[in-house]
Amino acid sequence: MLTIELFFEQSLNGLQQGVMLFLMAAGLTLVFGIMHLINLAHGSLYMIGAYVAASVTQASDSFTLGILAALVAAGLTGMLLEFSALRRLYNRDHLDQVLATFGMILFFNELVKILWGPQALFLSTPEFLSGTLEFIPGAPYPSYRLFIIGAGLVVALLLRHLIIHTRVGMLIRAGATHREMVGALGVNIDELYTIVFGLGAMLAGLAGALAGPMLAVEVGMGEKILILTFVVIIIGGIGSVRGALVGALLVGMVDTYGRAFLPTIMRELLDPASADTVAASMSSVAIYVLMAVVLIWKPRGLFQAYGS
């Protein structure tokens, strides 16, 4: 039965999933748009964020400290990764980048297994967010998910401010379209790239740390979200942070509505047994259908990055 309350609750779920995807997609799309680098290891930074947050929260009993530690760890790992390895890949073709960064996924998965062991880690919901809020009558909503929505929207606003109103943001925009010119004007491009990469890594780490209390903190957790993240940046337009936000919300909504309402709709049309199977299959392809439709309509995604 579809009630207004249920629809509203599912919309919140879609929004929350979208916000989570945005945190991942923002970093990935910046790196792709500015350095022209396909970074499959972005999910590994998400995993590192979750693991560090879980360890630090467990040791210190403070979720805030856990998140800060995750930001620092993911940011530093990202910058180190850029400085030591990825820097050499900017001028290579995409296939080399995919191969190298895929290798890094394997490397990080094994590293995490060596450091933390193969079993999933525990990360509890902070006490003040562990309850539910019943602002939709009859449908108490987990406070933690509301917190994620809030945190994600704040990050989106901060990023917007950073890119539009600050010097670094201006360089990022300039670097995306005219990188030789920016270099010729005396800007240290290498340094800029390292900073951008670190920023993207921090966002991925933040997403991992925020996901930790809801999800299994386990080896390989990054790959599961990575595919959706790529769908998001392709829909949004590669290199555009605004596109990443719109794309993430679209994907989050379509995926959630698909899973929430397709079974009910299918049950009206088919017998229950096949309805469940058909609905499950249809909802898992829904976002790819969305991607195909967007690409037919706008082959370069919804938003093109900075006039390129």
Binding site: T3, L6, M20, K224, A260
Partner: peptide
């Protein structure tokens, strides 16, 4: 209710809302 989810799914918010309903 009988629900089949995606293999490897990470977020069950949508399913949980339907379940409660």
């Amino acid at each position: 209710g009988e629900v089949y989810t995606k293999l490897g799914q990470v977020d069950y918010a949508a399913e949980l809302a339907n379940l409660r309903a």
